[in-house]
Design a protein around this nucleic acid. Structure first.
Lengths: 354, 354
DNA sequence: CGCTATTCCGAAAGCGCTTTCGGTGACAAG
DNA sequence: CTTGTCACCGAAAGCGCTTTCGGAATAGCG
């Protein structure tokens, strides 16, 4: 089955290529009669335009790229497939393509991006998990190339982003624990060049300040974003002379590791030591015990990112697309009043579990 | 900063465009002297070839597509991001692009694929989770377009695939349970138009036959591939007059749901009722209790799929790329001898857990 | 030193589409 | 009947690169 091109179609119809092209693209200067005729014939012969030629001629790429985070830990990216789905949905309306680019190393990131925008392969980019100061963002801002970022860098001005407020979330979580009666609250974090890690750490400290607790470096431990990371960090923190009665973890998988560390000591999480995670991953409800967490809003972020990026490509002002969502406490079984304290009434209700 | 194109570069060097092009692509009929000169100048001026034009001229797409599974359940696709990473790595060696296409509905799949191959956007495709008889595979086979599938259809002849043997895995799992002393073993499955579901079901039945157990339709329940699905199916099965003493689940997330159902009845999973899952997802070890499962081999399947697809595009014989891996039992805490029976010695050792 | 082989590069023809520009015929207006 | 005005379509020039082909310059050889 030889590909049928525009030329074949034109010859078949006895029309000029240009005419056929315009007919296919619904130009107003083609009579409805011939337009119908052309489109019918196209369908009949199975004509599918060659996209590459089309792109070259129009200069429009009709595609956007998603740049994967380079972090090699597969665990840290369960959200990727959801995000891609959402992006795909957004692009489907225009039948645009989605390119996934994956820098091999962190140093390649900028260069990969440069090549990408120069190649003309895409007309917009979405970035994930920016560093605290991210040179990709600087570059894109300077070049005027349309882009949006999932998350924010420390400087969030002058570009489009979608993020959930990690700082507020951790301050809230800390308030919650304080209300339960906790006074020594530990923090398990991630390397702070990742801006989200920094954000959440700030939230922790802000929460401390709000409640007139002193910041104690002994109470924070930086670990990998894995269950083992959380486990190690938790057992370190818990080995102190006066261990914390509650642990705030930078994400759920660390928190789940922390639960294991607590059980390993023979303590029961949620009673002897409270643990609160962040993300709201599906598995949290099946953890042992079910994990209390600051859950990100469900609204399909990929879809939103896609829609916003398209608007920017259409000429919208990037700075008008900065949306900050708020995480929400979902209480399950891994938090409670500290052992040593007369139990106070919890301020929020627990999620029902079957 | 105006894009610097081939023309600019040529003018700058006082050479013909064609010469510069050949120099950039390391043609043998260009002297090393001018080649170096050209490549240096290219680097200096920041010349990046326009990929679209390049593709059009060469006819090579230098890109492959990954077609996402259409199933709307995000939970069923935690492996997507790993797979994409692997594919990305494989393609990176040639600097090829990875396109992610996402049919909006199951009916769109074939049409989307048709457009994709006709558009010339890619020179190969990878499919996931084929149906029992999958018309996409038929189409691609007939068209001669390079492709590979992650999984197999019922008819596995005449095309390339990478799969793990679900049938063997479930037969093995059943043997294991039989060796522990179980006689009534339930199966929680998925709709069988998905070939992997059918495969695993066959394995279950084969295992039954191997051990001279009768097949009892009362012991199988078909459910969604979610935790709730597993939970519902398990509580149905367990409500029988003579409930099964063990449950085989088509994947880990169902199995984790089944654990919840068992606990909800006040029973303890692994003692009153054994549960074995399939996949080996990360979370299994943190389930309550840690989940025994048939784990897929770790070897980065995305990477392998990518490498094989590239070989096929290079002209390799698709039928020479059919790799079948074997799943492996990893014992944790959700299996054991049935309550009513004098415990027999387990035949395999348990994974150590901290 | 003349002639044939090389080596290296320029010229030009595409790749398959889009889009501008101009021209033809029809039809209304003067 | 002439002129102007549309509505519609054909011709042709690209888009930015690759690649074939041939020709000029150089080298090799007797």
């Amino acid at each position: 089955m030889p590909r049928v091109g525009l030329k074949d179609l034109a010859k078949h119809l006895g029309l000029a290529e240009g005419t056929v092209s315009r007919a296919m693209n619904n130009y107003p200067d083609i009579s409805l009669a011939t337009r119908d005729k052309v489109q019918k014939a196209a369908a009949a012969l199975g004509y599918k335009p060659n996209n590459t030629a089309r792109r070259l001629a129009t200069g429009r790429a009709e595609a956007v790229a998603y740049m994967m985070p380079t972090s090699r830990s597969a665990i840290s990216t369960p959200f990727v497939s959801e995000l891609l789905q959402g992006l795909g949905d957004a692009l489907a309306k225009r039948a645009w393509d989605l390119l996934v680019v994956q820098p091999q190393t962190a140093e390649d990131e900028l260069d990969t991006l440069r090549k990408l925008v120069a190649s003309g392969k895409v007309s917009g980019v979405v970035l994930s998990r920016p560093a605290k100061t991210d040179n990709r963002i600087e570059y894109l801002k300077a070049s005027g190339f349309p882009f949006i970022v999932h998350g924010r860098a420390k400087d969030a001005r002058g570009y489009a982003w979608y993020d959930v407020d990690g700082q507020a979330a951790f301050a809230d979580a800390l308030d919650h624990l304080a209300a339960l009666g906790h006074r020594r609250i530990g923090f398990i974090g991630a390397p702070s060049y990742q801006n989200f890690a920094q954000d959440r750490f700030e939230g922790y400290k802000a929460g401390l300040a709000n409640n007139d607790f002193a910041f104690d470096p002994e109470l924070v431990s930086i670990a990998e974003l894995t269950d083992e990371g959380g486990e190690r960090a938790a057992s370190d923190l818990l080995a102190a002379d006066v261990p914390p009665t509650a642990l705030l973890c930078v994400n759920d998988v660390q928190a789940i590791g922390a639960l294991a560390a607590i059980r390993a000591k023979g303590w029961v999480p949620g009673e002897d030591v409270s643990v609160i995670g962040y993300d709201g991953v599906w598995m949290g409800r099946h953890a042992n015990p079910p994990l209390t967490t600051m859950a990100q809003p469900q609204s399909h972020s990929g879809r939103q990112l896609g829609d916003m990026l398209l608007s920017i490509i259409d000429g919208g002002d990037p700075t008008s697309f900065q949306v900050l969502r708020r995480a929400e406490l979902v209480r399950r079984k891994s938090d409670g009043p500290p052992r040593a304290v007369i139990s106070t009434i919890p301020t929020t209700s627990r999620e029902r579990v079957k």
